[in-house]
Structures are given as structure tokens and as C-alpha cells.
Design a protein around this nucleic acid. Structure first.
Length: 410
RNA sequence: GCGCAGAUGGCGGAGUGGUCAAUCGCAUCUGACUGUAAAUCAGACGCCUUCGGGCUACGUAGGUUCAAAUCCUACUCUGCGCA
């Protein structure tokens, strides 16, 4: 195996679970794993500066190919010398391939299906397109993403223009964006799709994986600087999940394999960890496993115990902007926490910090009452301060996770 | 003092005889958020309810009408104009 830009080392393995503590060394620094990677879709972790990202303890940021391709365009980012230079962040960066947008802007759109789906709940027939000011019916409407065998037609969420992504195109864009770790182009399927569709889609995702790997390997310069992770799909089906794990982990082009793996999918709540378990029973131990789009701290614990090393999720940042913050609650165990909605009237005169003893900038300097006021007044500092707290919470949480594994308790 | 216009739910403001407990916006309250169409979205928002409905309401008091937030009279208050 030739020199790769990232090195994954396992320091400690749990004797109680499949958890492991380790590091991913990248050209832009070390990521201690298990790690939570904040999402910065459009080359910014919404509401905070890169200095804040570092200061609050996050070690890496994940951006999005689809969004950056549309705006400002990957050539602009390339002209800056890559994503890190563009956004003034000198730590390790990742880009998702845009595959998830084929799902979130396609079949999932307006149907109340996201990363997690309550299978009992039927979707809406009507959706509202952002900025359009009117409702449209999904059946008849111009849907912003449509999949075929070769790729995905995306409509720009910005101006409605049509764009066609193939695996090759996605990788080329990611090469221009220049993140340290990039992902193969995949299709995330809805859990509502029947098994026949899941199978057909998985074959397609596997073909796209090879296409992605080929494009990656053939660009020598990018190949030397960027790591490529293959993505496992297969829905909720054991045979498909295992087949996918086997296929993706064994796939090679000119003797080159993926540098790591992403585990993807949209799940009914109870299916997620089962699928991860099946997949990780097949994936090789010596490469990092990223659980895409997860998550809720309690879900991260489950993923860690199944041997996942990295996680990304919009929840801490999105919730922060919409008023919900994490608060440690160790009466419920070392990993215990609760969610507070700072917009609630009961915080109007609460002079305490979000979390007593929290070391973050927000908790050291501001009261719940002030936060409540900022939200009520529509002040953007609310989102900034809450984002700092939530991401700091996640960083501390992951530190605790690593500690507990190292101490043999997780 | 005279003339004109107006008084609607916490606020702004629709409605000008029945389909009005009253469009809409704001505020308020609550909820949701898991590879970001998201500093977003949803629900509630007179009182009571066994969720069928019942009751009280559109400045105040009367009146017309089968029926009034809507028409008439008086009064109170507000704005503008003239003295």
C-alpha cells in the first residue's frame, strides 16, 4: 500500500464493546477518535468563526459538495488554494459527495423523511419550496433531484437551474474543493422503498463507488493529498448491508482501495444501529469508519460501541440556531444529558448559565435569561452563543467517550 | 363649538345584514429538528366542554330585523379640518 495522506491508528480497543480509541492524522492535523465532526455545509459552521470552532474543541469540519458547487462554485474554492484556505480554517476538512442531496432533495422532499423516519407516519402531499411563497404538490411539481442509472439531476436550490452529477463529476468537484477526506458518490435510499428498489439502488451505488474510486486514483495530484471514503448502503436488509460492506471494503482500482468508509442510510429509529452492527462485522478493523449524519449523542454512543470512529451531524448547530441546547445531566449516568429549549418562557428570568460548570465561552459569560432574550428579540448572537455551547458540549462528550473506552468502561 | 372620519380579539388591521368566535400580520405559548432547501418549520392562541356542542363577544345604551360586527338613534372617546 502506498503512502496515503491520512493515517489511522488505533490506540485502545474496548474489551466490553467494539469501541476503539485512535487518531486520524491528516495533512492539517490530528483528529482524535471517536470524534464528532461539526457540519459546515457551505464552508462555514453557521454562526461561528473558524477560531471559535478550534477553541471550543472541535478538530475538523465537514462541508458539502452540492452546495459549494452551486455557490460559489468549486473553481473559486480551488483558486483560494482549497476549502481550508477559502474558509480560513487550518484544521482537517471533509466534504460529503452530494449523494445525500439526491435523497433529501429527491424522494424525501416534503415527505417528512429525513435521516430518521417514523415508518408509521405518512408524508405530506404538499411541500413548500423555500422562497417560492406557495405550496406545490410533490406529485406534479418540479422536484429538485431525480436519480437515474448514471447520476443525479439536481435543480439548484438557489436559482432552479438544472445540474447533472455523476460519480466522476462529484469527485472532480471534491478535488477542486480540496478537503482532506472526501466521499464516494452514493444514493441514500428511503426506508419506505421496497427491497427490490434497495437492491437496484445498491448495485448502482456500488457501480458509482468504482467510478468514484477510479476518478480519484486517476488524478495523481489530488490522490496524493486527499483520502477517499467509500459509502456502504443497503437499507434495513442484512444481506444487502453485508454485501455492501464486503463489496466496498474489497473494491479496488489499480490495486488502490478506499481509505476509509462511510456508513449511510435513512433509518427508522430502531434500524440504524442494527444496520451498523451488520456492516462493522464485515469492514476491516484497520480503516476508519464514519457514521454519516449521526447524530444525537445517545446515537453516537451506540455507534461508538459498534466500532464507528467518526460522526457528523447538523443537529448541534441547527438546534442551537432554533433554540435548543444540550445540558449535561449526570444523574442519568456519565453520558446523561437533556435538551433545553431556551425560548421557553421559564428561562426569561433564569439568571444561571445554560449548564453549571460548563467551561464554554457562553456558559462562562451569559445567563439563560440573556439567551432567552436574544432568541425572543431575534438577535443573531443567540445562534452564535448556543452553537458555541452545543459544539463544545459535543467535543467534551466525545472526550468523555474516549476516556471511558480507555478506562475500560465503554 | 361646528363639520368630516373612525372606534373590531394583547397590538396592527380585514370584514359592511345570515356561510363570523370573526381573513391576515405581529406578539405570545408549545412542539419539532440526526451526511443543512433550515437564524427554519409546525400547532395553539375569547371562556367552558363528557369534543357533539354550549356561552359571552366587534366603544356604551337602546332600536329595526326571522337574523346585526355589519342598518338606525343617542351618548362616550379618538383623529383631521374649520372657527
Amino acid at each position: 500500500m502506498q503512502n496515503r495522506p491520512i493515517t489511522f491508528s488505533i490506540k485502545t480497543r474496548s474489551t466490553k464493546s467494539n469501541a476503539r480509541v485512535g487518531t486520524i492524522e491528516t495533512p492539517h492535523g490530528v483528529i482524535n477518535t471517536p470524534a464528532f465532526i461539526p457540519v459546515g455545509t457551505k464552508a462555514t459552521v453557521k454562526g461561528i468563526t473558524p477560531e471559535m470552532v478550534k477553541d471550543l474543541g472541535a478538530e475538523s469540519v465537514l462541508s458539502n459538495t452540492y452546495h459549494l458547487y452551486l455557490q460559489p462554485g468549486d473553481e473559486i474554492i480551488k483558486a483560494h488554494g482549497g476549502l481550508g484556505k477559502f474558509m480560513n480554517y487550518d484544521g482537517p476538512t471533509w466534504t460529503d459527495s452530494g449523494g445525500f442531496q439526491a435523497f433529501s432533495l429527491g424522494v424525501a422532499l416534503g415527505k417528512n423523511i429525513t435521516k430518521f423516519t417514523s415508518s408509521a407516519r405518512p408524508g405530506y402531499d404538499e411541500i413548500s419550496l423555500k422562497g417560492s411563497g406557495h405550496k406545490v404538490e410533490t406529485e406534479n411539481a418540479m422536484i429538485p433531484a431525480k436519480i437515474d442509472e448514471e447520476g443525479v439531476m439536481f435543480r439548484s436550490i438557489i436559482d432552479g437551474s438544472a445540474h447533472y452529477f455523476t460519480p466522476k463529476k462529484s469527485i472532480e468537484i471534491q478535488q477542486n474543493i480540496g478537503a482532506d477526506i472526501i466521499f464516494a458518490f452514493d444514493e441514500c435510499t428511503s426506508p419506505h422503498e421496497p427491497v427490490e428498489y434497495q437492491k437496484r439502488s445498491l448495485d448502482r451505488t456500488h457501480r458509482w463507488a468504482l467510478e468514484s474510486l477510479k476518478t480519484h486514483v486517476e488524478n495523481k495530484e489530488a490522490f496524493s493529498k486527499q483520502a477517499l471514503f467509500g459509502i456502504i448502503q443497503g437499507g434495513r436488509h442484512e444481506d444487502l448491508r453485508k454485501e455492501s460492506a464486503k463489496f466496498i471494503s474489497e473494491l479496488s482500482y489499480n490495486g488502490i482501495e478506499f481509505d476509509g468508509f462511510g456508513i449511510g442510510g435513512s433509518f427508522a429509529k430502531e434500524d440504524m444501529i442494527t444496520a451498523v452492527h451488520w456492516v462493522n462485522s464485515i469492514l476491516p478493523e484497520n480503516k476508519p469508519r464514519h457514521l454519516l449524519g449521526i447524530g444525537e449523542p445517545s446515537d453516537i454512543i451506540k455507534g461508538v460501541m459498534e466500532g464507528c470512529d467518526t460522526f457528523d451531524c447538523v443537529m448541534p448547530t441547527r438546534n442551537a440556531r432554533t433554540g435548543t441546547v444540550f445540558m449535561t445531566d449526570e444523574t442519568d449516568g456519565i453520558f446523561g444529558y437533556v435538551n433545553l429549549n431556551l425560548k421557553n418562557a421559564k428561562y426569561k428570568d433564569d439568571l444561571g448559565p445554560i449548564e453549571k460548570g460548563c467551561e464554554c465561552y457562553t456558559c462562562k459569560n451569559y445567563t439563560r435569561s440573556y439567551m432567552n432574550h436574544l432568541y425572543k428579540a431575534g438577535e443573531m448572537l443567540a445562534g452564535t452563543l448556543a452553537t458555541i455551547h452545543n459544539l463544545h458540549f459535543m467535543a467534551k462528550f466525545m472526550e468523555k467517550v474516549r476516556g471511558e473506552i480507555a478506562e475500560g468502561r465503554l
